[in-house]
Design a protein around this nucleic acid. Structure first.
Lengths: 207, 207
DNA sequence: AAGTCTATTATACCTTGGTCAAACGGGCTA
DNA sequence: TAGCCCGTTTGACCAAGGTATAATAGACTT
Protein backbone atom coordinates (compact mmCIF):
# COMPACT_ATOMS: atom_id res chain seq x y z
CA UNK A 1 0.00 0.00 0.00
CA UNK A 2 2.98 2.33 -0.41
CA UNK A 3 1.37 3.72 -3.51
CA UNK A 4 -1.05 5.60 -1.36
CA UNK A 5 1.79 7.12 0.64
CA UNK A 6 3.16 9.38 -2.03
CA UNK A 7 4.55 12.79 -1.05
CA UNK A 8 5.71 15.48 -3.47
CA UNK A 9 8.09 18.11 -2.12
CA UNK A 10 8.30 21.43 -3.94
CA UNK A 11 10.74 23.99 -2.64
CA UNK A 12 13.55 26.04 -4.13
CA UNK A 13 15.88 25.36 -1.23
CA UNK A 14 17.65 22.16 -2.20
CA UNK A 15 19.14 21.67 1.23
CA UNK A 16 15.72 21.59 2.78
CA UNK A 17 14.51 19.24 0.09
CA UNK A 18 17.25 16.77 0.91
CA UNK A 19 16.62 16.91 4.62
CA UNK A 20 12.89 16.50 4.24
CA UNK A 21 13.29 13.71 1.77
CA UNK A 22 15.42 11.78 4.19
CA UNK A 23 12.97 12.37 7.01
CA UNK A 24 9.93 11.35 5.01
CA UNK A 25 11.56 8.32 3.44
CA UNK A 26 12.46 7.15 6.90
CA UNK A 27 8.78 7.44 7.73
CA UNK A 28 7.96 5.10 4.88
CA UNK A 29 6.65 7.64 2.37
CA UNK A 30 7.31 7.58 -1.35
CA UNK A 31 9.01 10.92 -1.98
CA UNK A 32 9.44 12.99 -5.15
CA UNK A 33 11.21 16.35 -5.20
CA UNK A 34 10.93 19.44 -7.40
CA UNK A 35 12.63 22.81 -7.11
CA UNK A 36 9.87 24.83 -8.73
CA UNK A 37 6.19 24.71 -9.51
CA UNK A 38 6.95 24.71 -13.22
CA UNK A 39 9.24 21.71 -12.86
CA UNK A 40 6.52 19.84 -11.05
CA UNK A 41 3.92 20.65 -13.69
CA UNK A 42 6.27 19.61 -16.45
CA UNK A 43 6.92 16.24 -14.83
CA UNK A 44 4.60 13.30 -15.31
CA UNK A 45 1.62 13.42 -13.01
CA UNK A 46 2.41 11.58 -9.80
CA UNK A 47 0.29 8.74 -8.47
CA UNK A 48 -2.88 10.52 -7.57
CA UNK A 49 -3.51 9.69 -3.98
CA UNK A 50 -0.73 11.96 -2.79
CA UNK A 51 0.18 15.01 -0.80
CA UNK A 52 2.18 17.99 -1.95
CA UNK A 53 4.38 19.83 0.52
CA UNK A 54 4.67 23.23 -1.02
CA UNK A 55 6.72 26.33 -0.37
CA UNK A 56 4.79 29.51 -1.00
CA UNK A 57 7.58 31.88 -1.90
CA UNK A 58 9.42 30.55 -4.92
CA UNK A 59 10.80 32.28 -8.00
CA UNK A 60 8.35 32.04 -10.88
CA UNK A 61 5.05 30.49 -10.02
CA UNK A 62 4.22 30.84 -6.33
CA UNK A 63 2.70 28.15 -4.18
CA UNK A 64 -0.70 29.81 -4.24
CA UNK A 65 -0.50 30.03 -8.03
CA UNK A 66 0.18 26.33 -8.26
CA UNK A 67 -2.61 25.58 -5.85
CA UNK A 68 -5.03 27.58 -7.96
CA UNK A 69 -3.85 25.71 -11.01
CA UNK A 70 -4.37 22.31 -9.42
CA UNK A 71 -7.78 23.23 -8.05
CA UNK A 72 -8.80 24.48 -11.48
CA UNK A 73 -7.92 21.21 -13.13
CA UNK A 74 -9.73 19.21 -10.47
CA UNK A 75 -6.68 17.58 -9.00
CA UNK A 76 -7.19 15.22 -6.09
CA UNK A 77 -3.76 15.94 -4.65
CA UNK A 78 -3.75 17.44 -1.19
CA UNK A 79 -1.57 20.44 -0.40
CA UNK A 80 0.33 21.26 2.77
CA UNK A 81 2.03 24.64 2.67
CA UNK A 82 5.40 24.97 4.31
CA UNK A 83 6.91 28.39 4.12
CA UNK A 84 9.30 30.75 5.89
CA UNK A 85 8.05 34.12 4.79
CA UNK A 86 4.35 33.73 5.25
CA UNK A 87 1.76 36.03 6.67
CA UNK A 88 -1.81 35.74 7.82
CA UNK A 89 -3.56 36.82 4.61
CA UNK A 90 -1.46 34.32 2.71
CA UNK A 91 -2.36 31.46 5.03
CA UNK A 92 -6.01 32.42 4.95
CA UNK A 93 -6.05 32.43 1.19
CA UNK A 94 -4.38 29.03 1.11
CA UNK A 95 -6.83 27.52 3.56
CA UNK A 96 -9.79 29.02 1.74
CA UNK A 97 -8.54 27.39 -1.43
CA UNK A 98 -8.57 24.02 0.30
CA UNK A 99 -5.08 23.56 1.67
CA UNK A 100 -4.83 20.88 4.33
CA UNK A 101 -2.49 22.95 6.45
CA UNK A 102 -0.22 25.98 6.36
CA UNK A 103 2.97 25.41 8.31
CA UNK A 104 5.86 27.75 8.96
CA UNK A 105 9.55 26.99 8.88
CA UNK A 106 11.10 25.77 10.98
CA UNK A 107 8.58 23.00 11.40
CA UNK A 108 8.52 20.20 13.91
CA UNK A 109 8.90 16.85 12.21
CA UNK A 110 5.89 15.60 14.09
CA UNK A 111 3.68 18.44 12.85
CA UNK A 112 4.72 18.03 9.25
CA UNK A 113 4.17 14.30 9.28
CA UNK A 114 0.85 14.66 10.97
CA UNK A 115 -0.31 17.14 8.33
CA UNK A 116 0.97 14.93 5.53
CA UNK A 117 -0.99 11.97 6.86
CA UNK A 118 -4.06 14.16 7.00
CA UNK A 119 -3.41 15.23 3.44
CA UNK A 120 -2.98 11.68 2.21
CA UNK A 121 -6.24 10.71 3.84
CA UNK A 122 -8.02 13.61 2.22
CA UNK A 123 -6.48 12.93 -1.16
CA UNK A 124 -7.44 9.26 -1.00
CA UNK A 125 -11.02 10.22 -0.17
CA UNK A 126 -11.16 12.72 -3.01
CA UNK A 127 -9.65 10.22 -5.38
CA UNK A 128 -12.11 7.53 -4.42
CA UNK A 129 -15.02 9.85 -4.86
CA UNK A 130 -13.72 11.17 -8.16
CA UNK A 131 -13.27 7.69 -9.54
CA UNK A 132 -16.79 6.75 -8.66
CA UNK A 133 -18.26 9.88 -10.16
CA UNK A 134 -16.17 9.46 -13.31
CA UNK A 135 -17.46 5.94 -13.69
CA UNK A 136 -21.05 7.07 -13.31
CA UNK A 137 -20.56 9.98 -15.66
CA UNK A 138 -19.13 7.61 -18.23
CA UNK A 139 -22.27 5.54 -18.08
CA UNK A 140 -24.45 8.62 -18.23
CA UNK A 141 -22.74 9.66 -21.43
CA UNK A 142 -23.81 6.47 -23.15
CA UNK A 143 -27.45 7.53 -22.75
CA UNK A 144 -29.30 9.03 -25.68
CA UNK A 145 -31.02 12.39 -25.35
CA UNK A 146 -34.38 10.75 -24.85
CA UNK A 147 -33.04 8.46 -22.23
CA UNK A 148 -31.49 11.34 -20.31
CA UNK A 149 -34.80 13.13 -20.45
CA UNK A 150 -36.58 10.10 -19.07
CA UNK A 151 -33.89 9.61 -16.44
CA UNK A 152 -34.49 13.12 -15.19
CA UNK A 153 -38.22 12.60 -14.83
CA UNK A 154 -37.88 9.15 -13.34
CA UNK A 155 -35.46 10.25 -10.65
CA UNK A 156 -37.85 13.02 -9.72
CA UNK A 157 -40.38 10.36 -8.90
CA UNK A 158 -42.83 10.95 -11.71
CA UNK A 159 -44.86 7.92 -12.79
CA UNK A 160 -44.46 6.67 -16.34
CA UNK A 161 -47.90 7.88 -17.32
CA UNK A 162 -47.09 11.47 -16.41
CA UNK A 163 -43.72 11.34 -18.09
CA UNK A 164 -45.40 10.07 -21.23
CA UNK A 165 -47.89 12.92 -21.07
CA UNK A 166 -45.11 15.49 -20.59
CA UNK A 167 -43.29 14.20 -23.63
CA UNK A 168 -46.39 13.56 -25.74
CA UNK A 169 -45.76 9.83 -25.85
CA UNK A 170 -47.40 6.62 -24.78
CA UNK A 171 -46.64 4.98 -21.47
CA UNK A 172 -45.08 1.90 -23.05
CA UNK A 173 -42.47 4.04 -24.75
CA UNK A 174 -41.36 5.46 -21.43
CA UNK A 175 -41.13 1.99 -20.00
CA UNK A 176 -38.71 0.93 -22.67
CA UNK A 177 -36.54 4.02 -22.29
CA UNK A 178 -36.64 3.56 -18.57
CA UNK A 179 -35.53 -0.01 -18.88
CA UNK A 180 -32.62 0.99 -21.11
CA UNK A 181 -31.61 3.66 -18.63
CA UNK A 182 -31.55 1.10 -15.85
CA UNK A 183 -29.42 -1.23 -17.94
CA UNK A 184 -26.98 1.41 -19.15
CA UNK A 185 -26.56 2.98 -15.73
CA UNK A 186 -26.25 -0.48 -14.23
CA UNK A 187 -28.84 0.35 -11.63
CA UNK A 188 -30.70 -2.57 -10.14
CA UNK A 189 -33.43 -0.50 -8.58
CA UNK A 190 -35.00 2.91 -8.76
CA UNK A 191 -33.43 3.70 -5.40
CA UNK A 192 -29.96 3.13 -6.80
CA UNK A 193 -30.75 5.20 -9.85
CA UNK A 194 -31.86 8.07 -7.67
CA UNK A 195 -28.66 8.15 -5.65
CA UNK A 196 -26.63 7.97 -8.85
CA UNK A 197 -28.56 10.88 -10.29
CA UNK A 198 -27.92 12.80 -7.07
CA UNK A 199 -24.20 12.24 -7.32
CA UNK A 200 -24.22 13.37 -10.93
CA UNK A 201 -26.15 16.47 -9.96
CA UNK A 202 -28.99 15.76 -12.31
CA UNK A 203 -31.77 18.20 -11.61
CA UNK A 204 -33.10 20.11 -14.59
CA UNK A 205 -30.52 22.52 -16.04
CA UNK A 206 -28.43 22.40 -19.23
CA UNK A 207 -29.22 20.95 -22.62
CA UNK B 1 -35.22 41.32 4.68
CA UNK B 2 -33.14 43.09 7.34
CA UNK B 3 -33.53 40.08 9.60
CA UNK B 4 -31.10 38.20 7.46
CA UNK B 5 -28.53 41.01 7.80
CA UNK B 6 -27.70 40.52 11.42
CA UNK B 7 -24.12 41.13 12.59
CA UNK B 8 -22.79 40.42 16.10
CA UNK B 9 -19.64 42.27 17.15
CA UNK B 10 -17.59 40.76 19.95
CA UNK B 11 -14.50 42.65 21.05
CA UNK B 12 -13.16 43.93 24.32
CA UNK B 13 -12.19 47.29 22.90
CA UNK B 14 -15.28 49.42 23.29
CA UNK B 15 -13.95 52.18 21.09
CA UNK B 16 -13.59 49.80 18.21
CA UNK B 17 -17.04 48.39 18.85
CA UNK B 18 -18.55 51.84 18.59
CA UNK B 19 -16.75 52.64 15.39
CA UNK B 20 -17.63 49.36 13.75
CA UNK B 21 -21.22 49.58 14.86
CA UNK B 22 -21.55 52.94 13.21
CA UNK B 23 -19.93 51.68 10.03
CA UNK B 24 -22.03 48.57 9.80
CA UNK B 25 -25.28 50.30 10.68
CA UNK B 26 -24.58 52.75 7.90
CA UNK B 27 -24.26 49.77 5.61
CA UNK B 28 -27.73 48.62 6.60
CA UNK B 29 -26.82 45.79 8.93
CA UNK B 30 -28.57 44.94 12.19
CA UNK B 31 -25.79 45.22 14.74
CA UNK B 32 -25.42 43.77 18.24
CA UNK B 33 -22.34 44.32 20.41
CA UNK B 34 -20.71 42.33 23.17
CA UNK B 35 -17.47 42.95 25.03
CA UNK B 36 -16.71 39.31 25.80
CA UNK B 37 -17.52 35.81 24.63
CA UNK B 38 -19.19 35.07 27.96
CA UNK B 39 -21.43 38.09 27.60
CA UNK B 40 -22.46 36.97 24.17
CA UNK B 41 -23.23 33.43 25.34
CA UNK B 42 -25.25 34.75 28.25
CA UNK B 43 -27.38 36.92 25.97
CA UNK B 44 -30.40 35.60 24.14
CA UNK B 45 -29.45 33.82 20.93
CA UNK B 46 -29.50 36.26 18.07
CA UNK B 47 -31.54 35.75 14.94
CA UNK B 48 -29.85 32.80 13.40
CA UNK B 49 -28.93 33.84 9.92
CA UNK B 50 -26.14 36.06 11.15
CA UNK B 51 -22.43 36.73 11.17
CA UNK B 52 -20.20 37.16 14.18
CA UNK B 53 -17.22 39.50 13.93
CA UNK B 54 -14.95 38.15 16.59
CA UNK B 55 -11.74 39.30 18.22
CA UNK B 56 -9.43 36.43 19.02
CA UNK B 57 -7.52 37.85 21.95
CA UNK B 58 -9.94 38.68 24.71
CA UNK B 59 -9.75 38.22 28.47
CA UNK B 60 -11.51 35.05 29.54
CA UNK B 61 -12.78 32.93 26.70
CA UNK B 62 -10.80 33.50 23.50
CA UNK B 63 -12.29 33.78 20.05
CA UNK B 64 -11.18 30.28 19.12
CA UNK B 65 -12.77 28.95 22.29
CA UNK B 66 -16.04 30.57 21.41
CA UNK B 67 -15.82 29.26 17.88
CA UNK B 68 -15.28 25.72 19.17
CA UNK B 69 -18.26 26.14 21.44
CA UNK B 70 -20.51 27.31 18.64
CA UNK B 71 -19.38 24.57 16.28
CA UNK B 72 -20.00 21.99 19.00
CA UNK B 73 -23.56 23.10 19.49
CA UNK B 74 -24.22 23.11 15.75
CA UNK B 75 -24.67 26.82 15.40
CA UNK B 76 -25.41 28.19 11.95
CA UNK B 77 -23.78 31.53 12.73
CA UNK B 78 -20.83 32.42 10.54
CA UNK B 79 -17.66 33.75 12.08
CA UNK B 80 -15.27 36.39 10.77
CA UNK B 81 -12.21 36.85 12.93
CA UNK B 82 -10.84 40.33 13.36
CA UNK B 83 -7.80 40.58 15.54
CA UNK B 84 -4.71 42.65 16.16
CA UNK B 85 -2.36 40.12 17.70
CA UNK B 86 -2.86 37.19 15.43
CA UNK B 87 -0.38 34.77 13.96
CA UNK B 88 -0.40 32.14 11.26
CA UNK B 89 -1.13 29.06 13.38
CA UNK B 90 -4.03 30.93 14.92
CA UNK B 91 -5.50 31.87 11.58
CA UNK B 92 -5.05 28.35 10.27
CA UNK B 93 -6.83 26.88 13.25
CA UNK B 94 -9.67 29.32 12.81
CA UNK B 95 -10.05 28.56 9.12
CA UNK B 96 -9.89 24.81 9.73
CA UNK B 97 -12.70 25.20 12.24
CA UNK B 98 -14.82 26.82 9.55
CA UNK B 99 -14.27 30.54 9.95
CA UNK B 100 -15.32 32.57 6.93
CA UNK B 101 -12.30 34.82 7.15
CA UNK B 102 -9.50 35.88 9.45
CA UNK B 103 -8.79 39.57 9.20
CA UNK B 104 -6.18 41.67 10.95
CA UNK B 105 -6.53 45.11 12.47
CA UNK B 106 -6.47 47.62 11.08
CA UNK B 107 -8.92 46.38 8.52
CA UNK B 108 -10.19 48.11 5.43
CA UNK B 109 -13.93 48.77 5.68
CA UNK B 110 -14.36 47.23 2.28
CA UNK B 111 -12.69 43.98 3.29
CA UNK B 112 -14.65 43.63 6.49
CA UNK B 113 -17.95 44.28 4.81
CA UNK B 114 -17.14 41.90 2.01
CA UNK B 115 -16.32 39.15 4.51
CA UNK B 116 -19.45 39.85 6.48
CA UNK B 117 -21.58 39.53 3.38
CA UNK B 118 -19.88 36.24 2.65
CA UNK B 119 -20.56 35.13 6.20
CA UNK B 120 -24.21 36.09 6.02
CA UNK B 121 -24.58 34.15 2.81
CA UNK B 122 -22.95 31.11 4.35
CA UNK B 123 -25.01 31.37 7.50
CA UNK B 124 -28.23 31.66 5.53
CA UNK B 125 -27.31 28.57 3.54
CA UNK B 126 -26.46 26.61 6.67
CA UNK B 127 -29.64 27.77 8.32
CA UNK B 128 -31.75 26.75 5.37
CA UNK B 129 -30.18 23.34 5.22
CA UNK B 130 -30.43 22.84 8.96
CA UNK B 131 -34.11 23.71 8.96
CA UNK B 132 -34.81 21.23 6.23
CA UNK B 133 -32.89 18.45 7.91
CA UNK B 134 -34.54 19.20 11.25
CA UNK B 135 -37.93 18.97 9.62
CA UNK B 136 -37.09 15.63 8.07
CA UNK B 137 -35.55 14.31 11.25
CA UNK B 138 -38.69 15.26 13.10
CA UNK B 139 -40.74 13.20 10.74
CA UNK B 140 -38.32 10.32 10.95
CA UNK B 141 -38.70 10.29 14.72
CA UNK B 142 -42.42 9.64 14.41
CA UNK B 143 -41.65 6.31 12.77
CA UNK B 144 -41.82 3.12 14.78
CA UNK B 145 -38.84 0.78 14.92
CA UNK B 146 -40.39 -1.52 12.36
CA UNK B 147 -41.13 1.34 10.05
CA UNK B 148 -37.56 2.55 10.27
CA UNK B 149 -36.37 -0.91 9.46
CA UNK B 150 -38.61 -1.08 6.44
CA UNK B 151 -37.58 2.42 5.42
CA UNK B 152 -33.97 1.32 5.40
CA UNK B 153 -34.66 -1.65 3.17
CA UNK B 154 -36.98 0.25 0.88
CA UNK B 155 -34.50 3.05 0.28
CA UNK B 156 -31.92 0.44 -0.58
CA UNK B 157 -34.14 -0.64 -3.42
CA UNK B 158 -35.21 -4.03 -2.13
CA UNK B 159 -38.59 -5.28 -3.34
CA UNK B 160 -41.28 -5.93 -0.75
CA UNK B 161 -41.03 -9.65 -1.14
CA UNK B 162 -37.36 -9.69 -0.21
CA UNK B 163 -37.85 -7.34 2.69
CA UNK B 164 -40.56 -9.62 3.97
CA UNK B 165 -38.25 -12.60 3.69
CA UNK B 166 -35.43 -10.77 5.49
CA UNK B 167 -37.71 -9.92 8.37
CA UNK B 168 -39.56 -13.23 8.39
CA UNK B 169 -42.83 -11.57 7.48
CA UNK B 170 -45.41 -11.63 4.72
CA UNK B 171 -45.31 -9.26 1.79
CA UNK B 172 -48.56 -7.62 2.72
CA UNK B 173 -47.19 -6.58 6.10
CA UNK B 174 -44.35 -4.78 4.40
CA UNK B 175 -46.77 -3.00 2.14
CA UNK B 176 -48.62 -1.65 5.13
CA UNK B 177 -45.48 -0.46 6.85
CA UNK B 178 -44.21 0.99 3.65
CA UNK B 179 -47.38 2.91 3.13
CA UNK B 180 -47.21 4.33 6.64
CA UNK B 181 -43.59 5.34 6.08
CA UNK B 182 -44.55 7.24 2.94
CA UNK B 183 -47.34 9.01 4.77
CA UNK B 184 -45.34 9.89 7.86
CA UNK B 185 -42.34 11.08 5.89
CA UNK B 186 -44.66 12.96 3.53
CA UNK B 187 -42.95 11.44 0.55
CA UNK B 188 -44.98 11.29 -2.63
CA UNK B 189 -42.70 8.88 -4.41
CA UNK B 190 -39.97 6.40 -3.73
CA UNK B 191 -37.53 8.79 -5.35
CA UNK B 192 -38.34 11.48 -2.81
CA UNK B 193 -38.04 9.00 0.02
CA UNK B 194 -34.62 7.99 -1.18
CA UNK B 195 -33.28 11.54 -1.24
CA UNK B 196 -34.74 12.17 2.19
CA UNK B 197 -33.04 9.05 3.51
CA UNK B 198 -29.79 10.25 1.97
CA UNK B 199 -30.04 13.60 3.70
CA UNK B 200 -30.74 11.88 7.00
CA UNK B 201 -27.74 9.64 6.47
CA UNK B 202 -29.74 6.46 6.74
CA UNK B 203 -27.55 3.55 5.77
CA UNK B 204 -27.37 0.71 8.24
CA UNK B 205 -25.71 1.71 11.53
CA UNK B 206 -27.12 2.33 15.03
CA UNK B 207 -30.09 0.81 16.83
C1' DA C 1 -61.00 -3.41 32.58
C1' DA C 2 -61.45 -0.44 28.67
C1' DG C 3 -58.90 2.07 25.41
C1' DT C 4 -54.95 3.11 22.51
C1' DC C 5 -50.97 2.01 19.85
C1' DT C 6 -48.37 -1.13 17.21
C1' DA C 7 -47.69 -5.07 14.59
C1' DT C 8 -49.26 -8.58 11.90
C1' DT C 9 -51.97 -11.00 8.41
C1' DA C 10 -55.68 -11.58 5.01
C1' DT C 11 -58.75 -10.58 0.95
C1' DA C 12 -59.69 -8.02 -2.90
C1' DC C 13 -58.89 -4.83 -6.41
C1' DC C 14 -56.61 -1.43 -9.00
C1' DT C 15 -52.44 0.94 -10.62
C1' DT C 16 -47.90 0.94 -11.95
C1' DG C 17 -43.61 -1.13 -13.42
C1' DG C 18 -40.96 -4.49 -16.26
C1' DT C 19 -40.08 -7.64 -20.08
C1' DC C 20 -40.79 -9.65 -24.74
C1' DA C 21 -41.50 -9.09 -29.34
C1' DA C 22 -41.92 -6.12 -33.11
C1' DA C 23 -42.57 -2.21 -36.18
C1' DC C 24 -40.98 2.27 -38.14
C1' DG C 25 -37.75 5.67 -39.95
C1' DG C 26 -33.25 8.07 -40.52
C1' DG C 27 -28.57 7.67 -41.62
C1' DC C 28 -24.58 5.10 -42.97
C1' DT C 29 -22.03 1.60 -45.69
C1' DA C 30 -21.07 -1.84 -49.16
C1' DT D 1 -30.04 1.13 -53.95
C1' DA D 2 -30.30 -2.62 -50.62
C1' DG D 3 -29.00 -3.83 -46.24
C1' DC D 4 -27.98 -2.62 -41.62
C1' DC D 5 -27.68 -0.26 -37.16
C1' DC D 6 -29.61 2.85 -34.00
C1' DG D 7 -32.94 5.32 -31.78
C1' DT D 8 -37.69 5.62 -31.13
C1' DT D 9 -41.99 3.98 -30.72
C1' DT D 10 -45.84 0.75 -29.64
C1' DG D 11 -48.87 -3.33 -28.04
C1' DA D 12 -49.52 -7.56 -25.29
C1' DC D 13 -48.63 -9.87 -21.19
C1' DC D 14 -47.02 -10.65 -16.47
C1' DA D 15 -45.01 -9.06 -11.95
C1' DA D 16 -44.80 -5.72 -8.32
C1' DG D 17 -46.53 -1.84 -5.85
C1' DG D 18 -50.48 0.70 -3.59
C1' DT D 19 -55.04 1.16 -1.32
C1' DA D 20 -59.04 -0.16 1.33
C1' DT D 21 -61.04 -2.83 4.77
C1' DA D 22 -60.86 -5.77 8.43
C1' DA D 23 -59.44 -8.98 11.87
C1' DT D 24 -56.24 -10.68 15.63
C1' DA D 25 -53.02 -9.96 19.29
C1' DG D 26 -49.65 -8.05 22.54
C1' DA D 27 -48.07 -3.94 25.24
C1' DC D 28 -48.99 0.03 27.56
C1' DT D 29 -51.95 3.65 29.56
C1' DT D 30 -55.64 5.49 32.15
Amino acid sequence: MNESQSVILIDDETDLLKALRRLLKAEGFQVACHTSAAEFLAAARPPSPGCIVLDESMPGMTGLDLQRELVAEGSTLAIVFLTARGDIPMSVRAMKAGAVDFLTKPVKDKDLISSIRMGLKKSADLELNKNEVDLLRGRFETLTDREREVLKFVTQGLPNKQIAASLGLVEQTIKVHRSRVMTKMRAESLAQLVVVAERLGITSQES
